[in-house]
Structures are given as structure tokens and as C-alpha cells.
Design a binder for these strands. Structure first.
Lengths: 141, 141
DNA sequence: CGGTATCCCGTCCGATACTG
DNA sequence: CAGTATCGGACGGGATACCG
């Protein structure tokens, strides 16, 4: 156990790169952005993250992500001792600083999506390995 | 081929999340930061990225990362038709904008590393499941 | 040098079952 | 509801061999 967040944690590397990988991890990004809005309960957060489309986060990965971010001091976990259990997650001051930068980056990708898609179209066009002289064929018959 | 960058590309999701994952991918982050400094040749870039410690990037993954970023219009690839081959990589205007934000985030993790490490120590302490009364044992013998 | 193609192992992560 | 434990498939990504 004592999960970390991404891959090569076992190897030695400058420690801040680990934090960076936690923060930029697939689900870390979305969790931070959502928590910047307001505190969330576990399942609520899961639903919010899954609303982004694609295949959503599993309970396991959400737990793992939250634990990593909590350990790094970015997320605060408030477990109320009631039945049924209720756990609220929120950003710490530190986490808020990180989340703002992450949201900025996400916002940027959203804003520039048009440019990116045009670049992709151009790239794909440039690489297409000559596929003409096909409808000329079919016309001849 | 036509590699993407991370996992669930095959699934449908809001397209900007894909770009975000490319930009925040393990090697994408470091490549963007390095290219913000100056243009690099392939192997030179590989060495620069590997200088971050840990297990470095393989040729394959660097190629993959650069192709993805080039396709998204963030990186410019300049292949000079000489022998031996020489290929220079640099940021486009778009890529520069992205890289600046990524570098900001990386810089933040570096600056706040102290806080993070203190939070981790506290977290680990809090969780240590009572490991006293051990040296008392060894003393008794 | 700067790739591409192929193989294949380690890890991530989803599915499932169980606890408080 | 909010987890923890375990298993197994999928895929990220390293090693190697080979082109221009």
C-alpha cells in the first residue's frame, strides 16, 4: 500500500517532480479543479469528475488520488464519525494555490482548442501518403 | 502508430482534455519546460530531460512525446536534409504559451516543496499505527 | 544522428468482494 | 456511504534491431 500517484516513485528523482506528477496526474488535475469550486463529498466528487466525459474515475483511483494529494498537504479530509459515514474533501491553502495554476492551464487548453485542432488537421494532411487518383479510377469504368 | 500521449484516447471525451493530458504528460511537461529555454536537437533534448534524475526518457518515448506535441501545434520540428541528419525542435507561439504555464506550475512545486514535505511528515506520523514499547522489550533482556 | 518497427515485461487501473 | 484487499487484463514504455 502507501500508494503514490504515478509510475516511477520507487526510483530516486528530485522530489518536486513527484509532487508535480501528483498534481498533473490524470485524476489529480480534475480533482483539484473541482475542489476549487467548493468542497465535495466522496461520491459527489466522483460524479463531478465523471461529468467530464470519457471513461470516468473508479472509486479506487479516486481514493488513491485523494490520499496522495492529502499526504502532500494539498487536500483536507474531514471524516465525520457518523453512520452512514460522511467525508468531506476540500483544498488547503497550499492546494488552492496549486489548483489555481492547474485550472489556468486547463482553461488555456479550452480557449486554444481551435488552434490545436487546426494544427492537427494541417499535420494529418501533410502526412497523408498520397491517396489521390482513386475516384479517377472509378470514373473510368 | 499515430501515437497519442496517454491512455484513454480511444474513448470519447471533451477534446481539450486530451490536449491537457498531452501537455501534462510525464515527458510532455519536461520537454515543454526545456524548450522554453532554447531550441534543442533530439539527443541534446534527451540529455537535458534525463538530467532531471530518476530514470530518464527513452528514445521511443521522447519521439512519441514530440510527435504528439507537434501534431497539437505546440512544437515545431525542423528537419535539415543533411548527412548526418540534424533535427531541431522549438516551441511555436502556441507552445510557448502552454510551456509558460507549465513552467509556472513546476516552479510552484519547487518553491513549495518545503511545505509539502512537512505535510507529508505530519501525515505519516498521524498514521503510524502505534510502534512504541519496542526498545523497552529489548532493554528487558 | 534521428528515427521506425517489433517484442515483451512491469505497472496502472478497473472489476469484484468484503468491512465499519 | 466510504472505503480496503485482491485479482487480472490492458497498456505504457524499455530493449533491441534495423533504415535513411
Amino acid at each position: 500500500m502507501a500508494v503514490s500517484g504515478k509510475s516511477g516513485d520507487s526510483e530516486e528523482m528530485c522530489p518536486y517532480r513527484l509532487v508535480l506528477e501528483h498534481v498533473t496526474s490524470r485524476w489529480g488535475v480534475l480533482v483539484l479543479i473541482e475542489l476549487l469550486e467548493r468542497p465535495y463529498r466522496f461520491s459527489e466528487l466522483r460524479r463531478a469528475v465523471n461529468a467530464y466525459g470519457g471513461r470516468g474515475v473508479s472509486e479506487k483511483m479516486l481514493t488513491q488520488t485523494l490520499q496522495t494529494l492529502e499526504r502532500d498537504g494539498l487536500v483536507h479530509r474531514d471524516a465525520k464519525p457518523v453512520i452512514p459515514p460522511r467525508v468531506d474533501y476540500s483544498l488547503t491553502g497550499l492546494g488552492c494555490e496549486a489548483a489555481e495554476r492547474v485550472r489556468g492551464l486547463a482553461q488555456w487548453t479550452e480557449d486554444r482548442m481551435g488552434d490545436v485542432e487546426r494544427a492537427r488537421a494541417a499535420y494529418d494532411e501533410r502526412r497523408r501518403p498520397h491517396e489521390e487518383a482513386r475516384e479517377i479510377q472509378s470514373r473510368a469504368s
